[in-house]
Amino acid sequence: MTSRTFHSVQALRAIAALLVVVFHLQIVEQKYSATTPLIPTLMRYADSGVDLFFVLSGFVMTTIAAGSYGSPHNAGRFLLRRCWRVLPLYWLYTSVVVALMLLAPGMANSSYQDQSIVASYLLWPQSQLPLLTVGWTLIHEMFFYLVMAGMIAFARESLLPWLLLGWAVLTLCAQQLLGPAAAPWQLVTSSPLTLEFIAGALVGLYWQRLPAGLALPVAGLGAAGFLSTLLILAGLDAAAPSAALRALGFGLPAALLTLGLVRWERASAPVLPPALLRIGDSSYSLYLSHVFVISAAGRLWQKSGWNSTTWQSGLFVLLTLLACVGAGLVSWRLLEQPLQKLSSLRRRRAQASGIVAE
């Protein structure tokens, strides 16, 4: 295990992706079930897996960027690699949505058919969700990458904590000044969700300073805080939480959970479940592909007539969840991995020819 490899982060990615899958599965179960849904009410807020993803992204970015600051060349390389990591697979699944809109309009979400196809491909903020709805999180990701690239290009590494804190203050001020009537790009740049990236980035800078004996208590505190927010929102039967509430109720606990687990991993080198790690490896593919699987499964379930009893609902939930995980693994193996290997091959060829200096 290299110094930059964290199996606990992969396990958390798996949990985050599965939470988002269950969130969408709960919506489809409620829509098509003729009996009482099995997925509990608190899973109405399981899209909080996204908040965990944001924290993990911030952690990973400052971890992989260590030692590369003060270099525009390194900044360009960082940005190119992040774009290659995110965009090709996202473009592929967005193209599936576009194809459905053209060939089978009834299977596509008609509420987004007025959206700009170009803006959706470019992850440019719009007044509605992108054509591939889960792409809204990638818009926030790309904004974070751009700011990080700016820091890598022009900042000294010793100033990074202060720059991150200053960014957090600017985000809070912009949120208060702009208000909900701001342009879509302003809403993204002023979103409190940015604070989750920043929290993860700070964890990436300081996790080694946490005493090893406090690692599991801190992780437990984070997990308890995350679950408590889920339970409180379910008990209040509240509407979807605002971005500010998400950052506080889910983002902060997610940061504590990440901090505790990565420190615990380095201190004790635990053996984590291989299945969970494999889902973590394929979490990006799972995140992008699961909406297609759940939508198709829900339509088939309704047409089958096997949606009128509790055991039939349970079978639908189980089989659909397994199908989502299976589709994510296939996408990871056949699409995502080859794309990333292609990028690595191109870098090695460039280095061999002297085009790129590592």
Rank of each mutant, 00 (worst) to 15 (best):
M1A: 11
S8G: 14
S8K: 03
A16P: 05
L19C: 12
V22K: 09
Q26H: 02
I27V: 09
K31E: 13
S33L: 03
S33D: 03
T36S: 07
I39T: 06
M43K: 03
R44F: 06
Y45L: 10
F53G: 08
F54N: 07
V60T: 12
T62W: 07
T63F: 03
Y69G: 06
S71V: 03
F78V: 12
C83R: 00
V98S: 00
L100D: 00
A104D: 01
A108P: 09
A108I: 08
N109M: 12
S111I: 11
Y112D: 12
S116E: 02
W124Y: 13
S127I: 15
G135M: 04
F143T: 07
F144W: 13
F144P: 12
V147F: 04
M148Q: 05
G150L: 04
I152V: 10
A153C: 06
L160N: 01
W162I: 05
W162Y: 14
L163H: 06
L170P: 09
A181N: 13
A182Q: 10
V188M: 01
V188P: 01
S190N: 14
S191Q: 00
L193T: 00
L195F: 09
A199V: 08
A199W: 11
G200K: 11
L205N: 02
W207Q: 09
R209E: 12
A215C: 06
V218T: 10
G225A: 11
G225N: 08
L233I: 01
L236A: 09
A239S: 05
A240K: 05
S242G: 14
L245H: 07
L245P: 12
L245D: 10
A255V: 13
L259P: 03
G260W: 14
V262D: 13
L272G: 01
L272K: 01
A275R: 14
S282I: 06
L288H: 03
H290V: 06
S295Y: 04
A297K: 08
G298Y: 04
R299I: 15
W301E: 01
K303P: 01
G314D: 02
A327G: 01
L329P: 03
V330F: 04
L334Y: 14
Q337R: 14
Q340G: 00
K341H: 12
L342Q: 07
S343G: 12
R349A: 11
G354K: 04
G354C: 08
